[in-house]
């Protein structure tokens, strides 16, 4: 089943100095439960594309369809995770992860129980009355993910959600997040600079061209293994083949 359909998306930014065409004619779709990544050269419009899908930005051209309905603004069916955890320093962890529900006026006992259940499942329950500054970077990122999941979106958008973390923590957190998303059976679309990260987590990878970004190719990533986890993928023999293909397509000049 198709959750997200992106058709003919184009975006032009207007400013005093002129016009920037960030995206042109983007078409693809994402299936239920799929993990898809977007990679592309810096400034090719990846963040712009996610903002459009999230309904934060109106596209100049084209349409976004979510579960068969046209997107025309921020929808509670989409959860968006940004690069920084953006936990609010003046709220406890519990209050932070309830933030989305509070904004959407959905602080019902069932939803609160679900959020607390997520905290318990993902090892943050003892920290619920602590403040963000008392948590490590990895735990903070997990709290940010729980804040997004607590509103129970059908689809998750992640914009370089792990790039603020150091390498070790990043490996651990991607493993965590991958397991969490698969367990909750969420569809995800992730933007990243990190090719290994995209290969290790994704079912499909979309490669964008330089600005104006257009779809260059879409790769299906499969590994011959029983229980796929990002960490295990990294040491699989197919990993390098995928890496080289995508690296060549990105056309990086030094």
């Amino acid at each position: 089943m198709e959750v997200l359909k992106v058709s003919g998306i184009g975006e032009k930014y207007q400013s005093q100095n002129g016009e920037v065409t960030a995206l042109s004619n983007i078409n693809f779709s994402v299936e239920q439960g799929e993990f898809m990544s977007i990679v592309g050269p810096s400034g090719c419009g990846k963040s712009t594309l996610l903002s459009i899908i999230a309904g934060l930005l109106k596209p100049t051209e084209g349409t976004i369809t979510l579960n068969g309905k046209l997107v025309s603004g921020v929808s509670p069916q989409v959860g968006y995770m940004l690069q920084r955890d953006n936990l609010l320093e003046w709220r406890t962890i519990l209050k932070n992860i309830l933030f989305g529900l509070e904004i959407q006026k959905k602080l019902t006992p069932e939803n609160i129980a679900y959020a607390e259940h997520l905290l318990k499942t993902y090892g943050l329950y003892e920290f619920k009355d602590k403040y963000p500054s008392q948590l490590s970077g990895g735990m903070r990122q997990r709290a940010a993910l729980i804040r997004t999941l607590a509103t129970n979106p059908d689809m998750l958008l992640l914009d370089e959600a792990f790039s603020a973390l150091d390498f070790q923590t990043r490996l651990a957190v991607t493993d965590d997040v991958y397991t969490i998303l698969k367990k909750e059976n969420k569809t995800a679309l992730m933007v990243t600079h990190d090719i290994p990260e995209s290969i290790s987590m994704s079912d499909r990878i979309l490669v964008l061209t330089r600005r104006p970004g257009t779809v260059r190719n879409i790769h299906t990533i499969t590994f011959d293994m029983e229980q796929r986890t990002p960490l295990a993928c990294r040491s699989h023999i197919q990993f390098n083949t995928y890496f080289n293909t995508i690296w060549n397509e990105l056309d990086v000049h030094v």
């Binding site: 968006y80 940004l82 959407q104």
Partner: peptide, 25 residues
């Protein structure tokens, strides 16, 4: 700005952005 964007991803209104992000911040 990022805090405000985060609130907007949940569909926060301007009023909510003020009372829940801008003022307490």
């Amino acid at each position: 700005r990022e805090h405000i964007k985060m609130a907007r991803t949940f569909g926060a209104s301007k009023h909510q952005i003020f009372t829940k992000i801008v003022f307490p911040g």
